[in-house]
Nucleic acid binder design. Structure first.
Lengths: 190, 190
DNA sequence: TTCCATTATGATCGAACGATAAAAAACAGT
DNA sequence: ACTGTTTTTTATCGTTCGATCATAATGGAA
């Protein structure tokens, strides 16, 4: 008994996420978002609240989709725990070669862009980092070679993961990233 | 035979740099910059060109002051090369404990914020990263334990350095940073 | 002291921003 | 077919943005 939505909320969030990912929060205008999603500004506000609220929703979706997929990928590996983590970093480095991740990591960008000024965003950033850090930790605990230092190594792996994406977004080439990851992997598989 | 400047250009650049550092390029308005520097907008434009040009000048100054100081610190150490690099990271991690670097690294923020969209800024980011990477490389070459893999380890150290600052800006506590750095240091001092 | 090149100031520009409100449109239930 | 509720559209709001300009102020050179 009312007019139905003409869009899929998930699709819209994915498209908005791509804009925020590429341009950052302040760099993305409402017109940018409207153009990318195909919605008029009125519909955007009606469906997702204001710009800040939309940004939070894209961060939530990132956790539900991309972060969850990354965690799943790591858990799906049947090698030793430390190698699963190292393999994850290597897989990303390999994809960089072919132009992927040119905009870095959405989470990493959000941390640098907005987290310091905005508690709500900072909370989302933490909520996004936590599962990744946790799956690192669990894998490293499972591996007898790294079990003892698993907590320390998990923080290290997270830092290396983030640093890799800064290098990428800063313009580093695939070879540079691969070199950095090779040492990180070696450090994990002590 | 003309009215003299009432401000020191270096001081103004330092104050503008602090604003850009904290808020990013898009997040810093001309009024913010005018308020922080004590100059009126007209004087800012007369002295430093437009906002983009001012941003580039702050990046140049960052390289001339902060980056040069970091390079000098590393070169001044009289321990082994790998330990000088590790010591540099540890020194930063220790300062994080007392609240320093809460805004991360200016260079790192610029890389994430603006480098992808702006070739001029990307060039500055590279010009800032290069001396750091180079001093890492030179130190690691000097150390017989790391000489062979110096190039690879230098890229790794740079990635770890950047990742550390993302963690900080994302809200990580000092302990987390120290843990990450401890593994990085161990990896360097193979 | 007068002049003049330069800087500092204050007012203001058009454009783009985020956000909103009113009107038109689209269905579900009756 | 009519009604009622929600969405979509269109137009527009007030604000802030980056940037500019005319004017006042400054201090060394003549």
């Amino acid at each position: 008994m009312a007019r139905p939505r003409s869009f899929d909320a998930g699709d819209v969030l994915d498209k908005a996420k791509a804009i925020f990912w590429a341009k950052g929060f302040e760099g993305s205008s409402i017109s940018d978002l409207a153009a990318a999603t195909g919605l008029k500004t009125g519909s955007l506000y009606n469906g997702f609240g204001d710009k800040h609220s939309l940004y939070l929703k894209t961060l939530d979706r990132y956790r539900e989709k991309e972060v969850a997929a990354a965690v799943g990928w790591i858990e799906r590996q049947d090698c030793r725990g430390a190698e699963a983590v190292a393999g994850f970093l290597k897989m990303i480095a390999a994809q960089v070669e072919s132009g992927a991740y040119r905009n870095g990591c959405f989470l990493c960008n959000a941390a640098v862009d907005q987290a310091p000024h905005d508690p709500a965003i900072a909370a989302r950033v933490s909520a996004n980092m936590a599962p990744l850090r946790q799956v690192f930790h669990e894998q490293l605990k499972r591996d007898p070679r790294t079990a003892e230092a698993a907590a320390i190594l998990a923080d290290f792996a997270l830092a290396a993961y983030l640093g890799m994406f800064v290098m990428i977004r800063g313009g580093a080439d695939g070879a540079m990233v691969r070199r950095a990851v090779s040492v990180t992997s070696a450090a994990l598989s002590v």
